[in-house]
């Protein structure tokens, strides 16, 4: 049953994908990692704090969502450092990040209030778009992850020219732009359904 069938729609070599399934309710002892949201090297001047809630269609926060972030370095380069989940060969436990290198990737489980917090480096622009953090959301009840983006406010011209934001109807663009609450502190709520539903993305 596990044999990988071929398909004629993507050429002779193409194989069919493994379907997604929900992360379920019990990943909490397996996937969350120490320092999962502390992505920025300690004391780095370009550190930004990004946080928010994840809400369901009735506006209730999700205490069992998992948010993953992936972003460019401040100079726009793609981070290549390993070490997001360093392990200790003696105890078999996690030792956390080393506080020096920037891996660009983080993973945060929402708390009992449905809230997540990450400290990362302000992403730089790449290609023709405005800078952003890529987001992947998982949750019990969500049969396949959802992608979105966190754009940081400040450069209105860059946001107006962004090719992805430009595809989004004007009334919904704000769901992709974080709210500046204090210098270098931004709020970004994720609404899975309902009023002000977050714009989710599909890569083709």
């Amino acid at each position: 049953m596990t044999d990988i069938a071929t398909t004629d729609t993507h050429g002779a070599e193409a194989v069919l994908p493994t379907p997604s399934q929900t992360v379920g309710p019990f990943y909490g002892y397996a996937l969350p990692i120490p320092d999962g949201g502390n992505i920025a090297p300690v004391g780095h001047p370009d550190t930004v704090t990004v946080h928010g809630h994840v809400y369901d269609g009735e506006g209730n926060p999700l205490p069992d969502a998992l948010v993953e972030l992936w972003g460019a370095a401040p100079d726009g380069s793609v981070p290549t450092a390993t070490g997001s989940m360093r392990r200790d060969p003696a105890s078999g436990g996690f030792v956390g990040r080393n506080g020096l290198e920037f891996t660009g990737w983080g993973r945060i489980q929402t708390d009992a209030d449905g809230h997540w917090v990450a400290r990362t480096l302000r992403p730089g622009a790449r290609g023709g778009g405005a800078p952003y953090l890529a987001v992947c959301v998982f949750a019990r009840g969500l049969l396949m992850h959802l992608f979105t983006r966190i754009y940081l406010p400040g450069d209105d011209a860059a946001l107006a020219a962004d090719p992805v934001l430009s595809q989004v109807e004007e009334g919904r663009r704000s769901t992709l732009v974080a709210e500046e609450q204090a210098p270098a502190t931004y709020r970004f709520d994720i609404r899975l359904q309902g009023e002000n539903e977050t714009v989710f993305l599909e890569y083709q």
Binding site: D56, G57, R140, G141, L143, L192, Q193, T198, F200, L201
Partner: peptide
């Protein structure tokens, strides 16, 4: 209550 009703972009 945990799935978007709007199509993805």
């Amino acid at each position: 209550l945990r799935h978007p009703k709007r199509p993805p972009v």
